[in-house]
């Protein structure tokens, strides 16, 4: 019991994920700055930002269901912490709880749903547009994402336990080495780009057209919850891909630890570079892309996995 509380609140969970997420957020801003030939923010910038937000006022809107407005970021934050704990447990300790992947799929939808609820509770026009777009993003990327998750599940003998998937890869080589694995991995990177709402799929939060859409009415600590949850997704989504396709991380030697961190950072930097070199797509082209290209590709990967290549 105590062990799991430690997991949830200290090591892969709350404390670690917040601190590490903010650091990865700094990496994002710094790499983006370097891409644009700038110097970029100092190392502790995201810590300053979140600390500052904790001291600001919360503004509620009269005549709106503000219970929903307050509870939405907290639920989203909680679900992201739980997901990070689950993924981190298998990443660092190699243990699972049995039904990890199913649980992760649900928790990630909870994040999107609370974003939609929080945004639509405000009654703000831009927030409503953002909520609508977020809804469409969920509809478009969810199918492709689940299909991507199916590939390692099939490879590992129809097991949704992350520990079993890791054990399978330790015996039979990484899943990314197979034809189905590499296709699913590529689609997976695109999917997590959409899940995190990064450019090219940041249509829901488009800062330049609908001014951060769903987050527009949030201020103070509630905004800090959203920002933290967003940065934490930087922690667990790349980790999840590393676990599913790239054999996770082992603590056998110093070299293997470095390799694990390297794999994680490689995916993060790849995401940041995709973010910096692409324009934002319209919501209809995003749906088009996911339903006409990404999902069929992932389906091909699933069929290949069933055949066994």
């Amino acid at each position: 019991m105590l062990k799991y509380l430690f997991y949830l609140f200290v090591f892969p969970g709350f404390l670690f994920a917040s601190a590490f997420g903010l650091i990865v957020g700094w990496i994002e801003r710094k790499v983006s700055a370097r891409v644009q030939f700038r110097v970029g923010p100092p190392f502790f910038q995201n810590f300053y930002d979140v600390f500052k937000l904790w001291g600001k006022e919360i503004i509620l809107i009269r005549n709106s269901p503000y219970f929903l407005f307050i509870i939405a970021p907290i639920i989203a934050f909680g679900s992201v912490i739980m997901t990070t704990t689950l993924v981190g447990m298998s990443f660092f300790y190699g243990v699972g709880i049995g039904g990890d992947l199913l649980f992760i799929i649900y928790l990630m939808v909870i994040y999107s749903v609370s974003l939609i609820l929080g945004a639509s509770s405000t009654g703000n026009v831009y927030s409503s547009i953002g909520a609508g777009r977020e809804m469409k993003m969920v509809i478009s990327d969810e199918l492709a994402f689940i299909l991507v998750l199916l590939v390692p599940i099939i490879h590992a003998g129809y097991s949704i336990d992350l520990a079993k998937i890791l054990a399978y890869q330790a015996d039979n080589g990484m899943i990314i080495g197979s034809a189905s694995g590499i296709i699913a991995f590529i689609v997976g990177i695109i999917c997590i780009q959409a899940k995190m709402g990064l450019v090219p799929f940041d249509t829901a939060e488009a800062e330049t057209e609908i001014v951060e859409g769903p987050l527009m009415e949030y201020s103070g600590p509630l905004l800090a919850f959203w920002k933290l949850a967003h940065y934490m997704m930087y922690v667990f989504l790349p980790m999840l891909l590393v676990i599913l396709f790239w054999g996770g991380m082992s603590f056998a030697s110093f070299g293997s630890i470095m390799a694990g961190i390297g794999k994680y950072l490689l995916i993060v930097v790849l995401m940041i570079l995709i973010r910096n070199t692409n324009p934002r797509v319209r919501i209809d082209s995003a749906i088009n892309f996911f339903w006409k290209w990404a999902s069929p590709l992932a389906l091909i990967a699933v069929i290949l996995a069933i055949i066994g290549v």
């Binding site: 700055a33 644009q36 110097v39 951060e212």
Partner: peptide, 18 residues
């Protein structure tokens, strides 16, 4: 980017609430 005020932590936001 020419002045890069993100160095000082200054950022443009789109909503007065932030």
């Amino acid at each position: 980017p020419g002045y890069d005020i993100e160095r000082f932590g200054i950022k443009l936001v789109g909503s007065a609430r932030h």
